[in-house]
Amino acid sequence: MNSAKPPAYIIENLTKVYKTRTVLDVNYLEVRAGEILAIVGPSGSGKSTLLRLLNFLEPPSSGQITYGQEVFGPERSVSLAARRSVTTVSQRPILLDRSVRANVEFGLRLRGQRDRDGQVRDALQRVGLAALEGQHARTLSGGEAQRVALARALVVHPGALLLDEPTANLDPYNVGVIEESIRALNSERGTTMVLVTHNIFQARRLADRVALILDGKIVEQAETEAFFEKPADSRSKAFIRGEMVY
């Protein structure tokens, strides 16, 4: 990792309140350029909410996110260009009611890009689905659909890719394919990634750094090695030992 580069994201005093409930409350968190940052934490702790804010899909209730030159806050939105340089593979991907090809092509069409064929093929090859280009998306298996969702996100060459449980409910084969694409993308393109996962083994396999979130608060963030070997917070220890109910 190149520590001379400025961070991709700087998150400061960020909160998200739904009705009266504060579901996210992050004092400070950086996402370094080019790293894979894993966010782990129990169900309902605010992981998906954090990703929605990092993708500028909802405004925060207070605080701010600095992304490159731009600042995102309760009353400040970011440019379309900034928004288009971030994309999410969601926890429950929903593909368009079209062919696999049309799904992968979608982000390129939105950006008015021509000559999409090669890029679509490359993206599908990365997830090992080149053969399914012509199939209708709604007929895919769960694992295939998840991989198409990854392909349609990476085809736009995002600067930051947000992955929300990209392998939840998948068999080991599909988990392997997806993890391999994530790793390759990160090393070849230097894509910054935030990976939300329940699976601490996956965090350990893929991430440069790990952050633990509990009740909307980041209780520990550290290099992966240190996070697992020498957790500073007792709650991190409990989480790693699997004592936390989720």
């Binding site: 928004r83 288009r84 971030v86 999410t88 969601s90 991907p93 929903i94 939105l110």
Partner: peptide
């Protein structure tokens, strides 16, 4: 149409 789909379409860069 699923509200989740709308959000994912936006996330892919749709105006």
């Amino acid at each position: 149409v699923d509200a989740g789909l709308r959000q994912q379409v936006r996330s892919l860069g749709a105006t």
